[in-house]
Nucleic acid binder design. Structure first.
Lengths: 336, 336
DNA sequence: ATGAAAGCGCTAACAG
DNA sequence: CTGTTAGCGCTTTCAT
């Protein structure tokens, strides 16, 4: 069933059918009706490949996420999706499942022009790799970090700033021996959050103790193991700043096993505002990133670039985050 | 940069380049090397639209999920993804965001041949609608329910059976007044779980009390409101079977507000094995569906159909589920 | 083992 | 307002 069949049935040319399909205003309404009816009767549906090939557009954008399981991404996707949808784009989500190879594989969708633009929500891919794609003329945006390339749209929060804020909060509650649970080394998030941690210590004249740093790879189980290593070292600490909530959950597990009370014996702050943090006892203090807004504004920007070759806002959007103080660091947990 | 450019540079015909690209064995290795080098130097990447148009295949399958936020879907997607990937297919995920219109919109990807096959993980779409697509020759699979159509692959668990098991568990713990929190009416899950509930009562000669049924639309907040309505009725009940964990979370909230203790004053069982159930206090009894297996086996089946026009296994896969007894219904919660 | 030619289904440019 | 023509970039006969 193709466009010529419809044209034949309706007694018009393929062009006219195409015009009707694409909502051109210069078709007589009687003609339009004939065509519509033929489409209806034949059950015709236009072929995307032919369309894309001819028009060199797909009206689709792709989103590569590192792991669809991580709730952090879901809200971002909604922001992307709704904005894109309003502008006539479909959003295709690709789950890289923490797998670098798969992640790179999905890049093919952009290069083979299955999609018009791509949004990366993955901390793993290297800056040069991304810059290289942009140099080749592909339209790219990235959420969660800054890329220094004039054609790459970014939306991110200030890791250093909110980490400093989170750790300062612990310090102001009287803690001086604060451990830091880091994520994997390749992620900017890891070292920027570490830097924020260090700055907070500096600001309050607290010495930096490298033995209080452990890596938990942003993972619950590895976070558990990391904090167990800390306890094993016998260096005293009364608080933990975990670079994400997953690792903070690992801290809960460790404390439960060791009979350590949160927050009276150990205060805890995470990052991401994972939903579980509101349900666990005691509730988890954390940093909320405006995920929906990041997705939405970045998408606005990217689509602006794709269509006008200019960004409606500045291409790098630094977005404010919020420290949520719940019970695990001595708050009341009254936010739900 | 197209295939003729590569051909020119390598001093061969476009056909030969195409053959190299597609791994044809009948190309002399010296020729292959020339071509590969030209591809490399030119940074050529094949255009998907042209390819798809010519070959009438995309090597992609789509997955429409009702809401990507719901963790229930994430594992299913992993099962789909890994199986598809192993067979050379890319998986594109579409988030319908609980929106019927968007959901239907994504169907367009199948009809316009952007994807070769589609997996539905959405309880909302009606049976006839799905059957209709299959009748038109599209390749479709569905997870979570049974569709009576010889060309539709399905994978699902037995709602009636596991609900009967869950409610029997409550009855065996001494409960006779058990409330049921239902999901939205369009979903088979809702009434099948209700039927299992009724069967369990029948089997144990406990009268069915319609006033103990309330609808919470599979949603936490609405589940909370539903159980509040139950309390307001002043009909006594000592246990709740919630048709999913989200609504069960609403029950926790209601109990917290009203000072009702779980499980001593109210026993609770949900469905889905949401991750939160392991962290909340008391831990939540629930029904685990083998999500990964459902996704994987269905995909295996669908791809088999797409390529051989036959199902490797029977087209309707009924998959066993498991009742997980944790603290909320009197268990020890020792599973984590 | 390689190439020439045809065509997948659509839309854009141009003509009328 | 409508039609004719050409071509998007690739793969697939068929021929050599």
């Amino acid at each position: 069933m193709k466009i010529v069949d419809v044209a034949a049935k309706a007694g018009v040319s393929p062009t006219t059918v195409s015009r009707v399909l694409n909502g051109s205003s210069l078709v007589k309404s009687r003609t339009r009706n004939k065509v519509m009816q033929a489409i209806e009767e034949l059950g015709y549906y236009p072929n995307a490949a032919a369309k894309n090939l001819r028009s060199q557009r797909t009206w689709k954008i792709g989103v590569i996420v590192m792991d669809i399981n991580v709730s952090y991404y879901a809200e971002i996707i909604k922001g992307i999706e709704n904005t894109a949808y309003a502008k006539g784009y479909k959003v295709l989500i690709c789950d890289a499942q923490n797998n670098r190879e798969k992640e790179r594989d999905f890049l093919g969708l952009l290069m083979d022009r299955t999609i018009d633009g791509l949004i990366l929500v993955t901390p793993q891919m290297s800056d040069p790799e991304i810059a290289d794609l942009a140099d080749k003329g592909y339209d790219i945006g990235i959420i969660g970090r800054y890329i220094d390339h004039e054609r790459v749209a970014c939306a991110y929060t200030d890791n250093i700033e909110f980490s400093e804020r989170a750790v300062s909060h612990l310090i102001e509650n009287g803690h001086t021996h604060i451990a830091f649970l880091s994520g994997f080394a390749e992620a900017v998030d890891s070292y920027e959050r570490l830097e924020g941690y260090i700055r907070a210590l500096k600001k309050h004249n607290i010495p930096f103790r490298p033995e209080l740093i452990e890596n938990g790879n942003f993972d619950e189980t590895l976070g558990y193991e990391a904090v167990m290593r800390l306890f094993a070292k016998k260096v005293p600490f009364t608080a933990v700043y975990a670079a994400n909530d997953e690792m903070a959950l690992g801290v809960y597990k460790a404390c439960k096993e060791l009979g350590i009370r949160i927050p009276s014996q150990l205060a805890l702050v995470g990052v991401d505002n994972n939903r579980i943090g509101k349900y666990i006892v005691p509730t988890l203090s954390t940093v909320e990133q405006p995920k929906y807004a990041m997705g939405a504004r970045l998408t606005e920007n990217l689509i602006g670039w794709m269509t006008q070759k200019q960004f409606p806002e500045r291409r790098d959007l630094k977005i404010a985050s919020e420290l949520i103080i719940r019970e695990s660091s001595g708050g009341t947990g009254s936010d739900g």
